[in-house]
Every structure is written in C-alpha cells, then in structure tokens.
Amino acid sequence: MKKIVVNPELCTGCEMCALICSFVNTGGFNPHRACLSINHFQDGVFNSPAFCQQCEDAVCVKVCPTSALEIDKEKGYVSLDTEKCIGCGECEENCPFDMITIDPDSKKAFKCQLCDGQTYCVDYCPEDALGVYEK
C-alpha cells in the first residue's frame, strides 16, 4: 500500500497541500474540504498535516455496508466508489485517524485516493515536506 507521509520539521502550515487537495477533489478552494487535515498546534510553533493512512486492514472498508470502500492492492490505496456509497457515515464514525468524512455537498463519503497517483499535495508543497511511502 502507498501513503502520503510528512516531515513535520519542514511544514510551515501554509495549507497549500490542503488548498490544492480541495481544488482537485471538489472543484473549489477550502482547506476544510480537503481529504487531509492540517493540525495547527495550539501554540502555533508546530504544524503538521495528517493524511489517510490507506490501512491494509482498514476499518472503513470493514464497516461499509455497501462495499463502496475497497482495498485496491494494485493501486495501493483504499478506493471509494461514490456510486455505491449511501452516505451512512459509518466510515466517518469509525476511522481511527478521522481521515474520512461525509462531504457536505455530495452527502457521500470523501477520502484521499492519492489523486489516482498524481498526489498533487506532494507536488505543491513548497517546502518539499511531503512524500509517498510505499510498503
């Protein structure tokens, strides 16, 4: 499986990863609508984005009642079929990393699928703080 990893020492909190993510996945800009989230720590000294872990033993896949979520070993991520998704929110409730949400517009599950290999967030990070880890 593949996942996006971060070197938090380099992260400046600029949100460009979240901005491009929301743009690619929703068509507009808003970091809250990205499928990654940036933790601006309380004192402002550290920031660190969090990403979907693309778990090999994914809880979201297990709890999905319609098999909309599947582990795609070939592509290396947990895939989402929005046609099958009924927006029940089981995945959102059970993800231990809070990395899957119900999109307020489509009312369907919303998660990182590595932009089908494009990983725009990694490309747009001005500090080169992000990378793709594969195991």
């Binding site: 400046t12 460009m16 970091p31 402002g44 001005p126």
Partner: peptide, 11 residues
C-alpha cells in the same frame, strides 16, 4: 520554525 500564512510559499 518557519511559519507561513495560508497559501503563502514565502513563510
């Protein structure tokens, strides 16, 4: 640390 505003690559 370097700290940026939203959307800014300068930090």
């Amino acid at each position: 640390r370097n700290l940026a505003c939203s959307g800014c690559p300068i930090a």
